[in-house]
């Protein structure tokens, strides 16, 4: 009972602290809000870039074209050789009939050209589509596949893919760096703002000490106050994340520039992002208060 009463009193005192010192609380809340908005943007950007990278990596395949003279047993030999290579995630044989039909289905122009082709006229070759485990070693695999007897050509979007992936990787790293830097800056800013709030209440802390409040007695209401400030400061960033990202997603129909670069589905992504923002707000608010009140306790 006693501890429950103390907790309730601490929460009540913290709320009183927030509202009775509203101008300073407002300063702290604004500070948290602004930085959390920037954190939210970096977070969304970073996660999407990460997602692009994964999509690109998943879609990168080596296409090995097979000599049209190769018969079924030769194809089987090639299959065995491919399966014996290292770094192979999966591979699939795609007969030329299948590719032809897919192409005809995909476009009327293709269809009108290709429908009159005889089997001999059809320049399309049987292929193996190969996915690798480690995208960075795709060159190596491609070279080995090229050497297999019966393979006439190997294509895998050389250079472009690697460049794209390394660019995405770079953006992702910058975003993560920005998020970490922002969190640190926010913690520092909030700590300083709360320090001003608390300095203006030095008298209150002095009186609390005088009438026998322990350091914990004094610190807890301020830490809860920091928690409340963090929570209030994360309302607008969370709202913007949920509403803003949904709007963005719908505006771009879930893709950026091309169907190749898909945005992350808003649900549940925005809720996870919101939880992270609230978590950062709360932790940073509490840490800021803890740091700020420390100065006034002679420990």
């Amino acid at each position: 009972m006693k501890s429950i009463r103390i907790i309730i009193r601490n929460i009540r005192d913290a709320l009183k602290g927030v509202f009775r010192n509203f101008s300073l609380s407002f300063a702290s809340i604004s500070c948290i809000t602004i930085t959390l908005i920037v954190v939210a943007i970096s977070l969304i950007l970073s996660e999407n870039v990460d997602n692009f990278t994964k999509l690109v990596e998943r879609d990168v395949t080596i296409v090995a074209f097979i000599d049209n003279n190769a018969d079924d047993s030769k194809i089987e030999e090639i299959r065995e050789e491919i399966s014996s290579l290292n770094n192979i995630d999966e591979y699939e044989f795609r007969p030329k009939e299948q590719i032809t039909n897919e192409m005809r289905d995909s476009s009327e122009v293709f269809d009108s050209i290709m429908k009159n082709w005889t089997d001999e006229e059809n320049p399309i070759q049987n292929t193996f589509q190969i996915k690798v485990k480690d995208i960075n070693k795709i060159d190596n695999v491609a070279k080995k596949v090229e050497k297999i007897d019966g393979i006439t050509l190997v294509k895998y979007g050389e250079g472009v893919v690697n460049q794209l992936i390394s660019t995405f990787d770079f953006i992702h790293k910058i975003c993560i760096g920005a998020v970490i830097a922002l969190i640190l800056v926010t913690a520092f800013l909030i700590s300083n703002t709360i320090k001003i709030t608390i300095s203006s209440r030095q008298r209150e802390i002095g009186i609390m000490r005088l009438i026998g409040a322990s350091n914990l007695n004094i610190r807890i209401p301020f830490i809860i106050e920091g928690l409340i400030l963090g929570l209030l400061g994360s309302i607008i960033p969370v709202g913007l994340t949920i509403y803003g990202y949904n709007t963005l997603y719908n505006h771009f129909h879930g893709q950026l520039f091309s169907p190749f670069i898909k945005l992350i589905e808003p649900v549940p992504f925005v809720y996870y992002a919101s939880l992270i923002l609230i978590g950062i707000g709360i932790l940073v608010g509490m840490f800021g208060s803890w740091r700020a009140v420390r100065k006034h306790l002679k420990i």
Partner: peptide
């Protein structure tokens, strides 16, 4: 310093 409250609770100032 951390235990000062023990005496403060016995004294009014």
């Amino acid at each position: 310093n951390g235990k000062v409250y023990k005496i403060r609770r016995k004294i009014g100032v």
